[in-house]
């Protein structure tokens, strides 16, 4: 949730500065984990195309994806809202779950494996290209330093 870290006077409003403050606040909050989570990654699904140029965004998105990549397949508490039949229905659901558990675990653990592999592959590609770009930039800088001054 947002807090109010800004100190802004209404007179002479400067949107460039306000936006810079917003970015600083977001950076700090992201560091503290305030903007992590699967839901956030989902909210960005329509934004990916818009931010192809934004390196920081990709890092942020990967961070969110890491949090979202594994489907929770742990056991869960079985409840029933209809009070009258609750004990019976809970017992029925538990029996049903015990029969299905094996198959769903198998299915979802495989899905988790696929998700994990895809994420690792994406991270690896990203790392590789970053290294490649870094090497090329260093090489260009070296070559430029050899040029005679204009």
């Amino acid at each position: 949730m947002s807090t109010g870290p800004f100190e802004i006077g209404a007179d002479g409003v400067d949107v460039e500065r306000i936006n810079a403050d917003i970015r600083d606040t977001v950076a700090a909050k992201m560091k503290s984990g305030a903007y992590a989570g699967a839901q956030l990654a989902r909210a960005e699904r329509f934004n990916l195309m818009n931010l192809k140029k934004d390196e920081n965004f990709f890092e942020f998105y990967m961070e969110s994806l890491r949090e979202a990549v594994y489907v929770d397949i742990n056991d869960f508490e079985i409840r029933e809202r209809r009070a009258g039949l609750a004990p019976l229905l809970v017992r029925f659901k538990k029996t049903l779950w015990s029969l299905l558990k094996f198959y769903t675990y198998r299915l979802w653990s495989q899905q988790n494996q696929v998700n994990g592999l895809l994420l690792s592959a994406t991270e690896e590609v990203d790392r590789k290209y970053r290294d490649k770009i870094k090497t090329l930039e260093e090489r260009i800088a070296k070559l430029e330093s050899r040029l005679p001054p204009a």
Binding site: I22, E44, L51
Partner: peptide, 22 residues
């Protein structure tokens, strides 16, 4: 000087919160 811009959800949240709070 009439508006804010956002690149992603966190900036949207901060920008809109600011407009609501001030």
């Amino acid at each position: 000087n009439g508006g804010l811009w956002f690149r992603n959800y966190p900036e949207f949240e901060e920008g809109l919160s600011l407009l609501l709070e001030y």
